[in-house]
Design a protein around this nucleic acid. Structure first.
Lengths: 231, 231
DNA sequence: CAGTATCCTATCCGATACTG
DNA sequence: CAGTATCGGATAGGATACTG
């Protein structure tokens, strides 16, 4: 069942048939954020199985929202790009995200901590401008987590490209940060700030880089929206 | 499966968990449009089973989107109202509907014709201003449909209240209109106009009322958006 | 890297009937 | 009017392994 659609001519119902299947909106967030490769998309939706991701991408292609193209001069490598119709979904995703930021209780969001997802998001939104124009390495340590998820490195290249490593890249580290995942996530979501959480953040290394963290750490696109839930 | 959520702290993912379950967005459209009673909501989502409607309403209540209250001085009669958070979903529903109107092929929408739904929508959006300040009755005839769905009456009371009848209310009819359901739906959706479809519309009765139909016939809230699909 | 293939079950949901 | 109760089937989608 379920699938036979809503049988309504209303354009909203038609749109909802396409957009409101499981994972679709979150996948669109990734596409809108600029991911184009299958495995990059996977990292943005890690709990989604590859089969389902593949299926959804095909559905979006059928719906005229996504275009799949072989990358020039690379055999067997494909790119997913939003079409005009796909780009026009940005306001939909944005308003829904803003609503979530305004009205979904922070406690609820913070039940879904995930270091790899957070680091992946931080990688994407990091702003290299305030950092030195050379390779810069920042190490994140979450002491409470299991071995394999405890250490992360953001490597900002001279040209501004940002890489995320979960094993020591071997470069000299400019700034070491140790904190708990919940605090770091709350900061990234804009629920609090680096300053307000200074008690829970422990820096070692470049003092100035530490002091300006709030400026180079790119926050969630929805971080600017204030919570409106009554306490 | 499905249900365990997306396990993402992202506010968009949190919002999607609430909003992107089956029927929810369409139900919200009804609530935003102003329906407050269980059976009125049913008419707006006729293909949704009452159990599921009941379940969704409870979920929306839990999510702080809807409030259920007993109507004053009427035992056992309940009202569903949007909370602040619920009202704030209007932009979400609106942008999604606009996207649908822009990008979903008209042919696809027009596969889902439904006279009772159309008439129910027309009832809601009808604009009594251009009509006489007395009871006015307009009869719709869809000759191609089965008996039980062929004849409809919109009764506009002197105070502007609009009633929909599917059996002859017995009042004198001011205007008779005969057309096919597809044409009437396309007009209501803003895909075409009364003027452009004059060939397919057959009026009897008050000439002036017929001539001004485009003004008193309330269109879909999304009718103003132009299609952007390339031909 | 970029997906497919397969299996299997939890659960969603549609249909229908029923209640105060 | 405003829902609840029950039932059963389809299927969506999770888990896992595999391919070129």
């Amino acid at each position: 069942m379920a699938q036979p659609g809503y049988k309504q001519f209303c354009p909203l119902a038609m749109a909802a048939e396409i957009l409101c299947s499981r994972w679709t909106i979150v996948l669109l967030r990734e596409l809108i954020a600029g991911s184009t490769r299958f495995n990059d998309l996977r990292r943005g939706v890690p709990k989604m199985s590859p089969s389902l991701l593949s299926l959804r991408l095909k559905e979006l292609e059928m719906a005229g929202i996504v275009e799949r193209k072989e990358v020039r001069s690379e055999r067997g490598v494909y790119d997913y790009h939003l079409t005009e119709a796909g780009k026009d979904l940005q306001p939909v995703v944005e308003t829904m995200g803003i609503w979530g930021q305004r009205w979904v209780e922070a406690q609820l969001s913070l039940k879904n901590l995930d270091p790899s997802l957070l680091m992946w998001d931080m990688r994407r939104n990091l702003n290299p401008k305030p950092l030195p124009r050379r390779r810069t390495v920042i190490q994140f340590l979450y002491p409470e987590l299991a071995q394999s998820k405890r250490l992360w490195w953001l490597v900002i290249e001279a040209d501004g490209d940002v890489d995320l490593c979960w094993s020591d890249p071997g470069f000299e580290v400019d700034l070491y940060l140790s904190t708990d995942l919940r605090t770091m996530t709350a900061i990234w979501m804009g629920l609090t700030t680096v300053d307000r959480e200074s008690q829970r953040l422990s820096f070692t290394g470049d003092r100035k880089m530490a002091a300006t963290m709030q400026t180079w750490l790119g926050l969630s696109p929805f971080a600017v929206e204030k919570k409106r839930t009554k306490a």
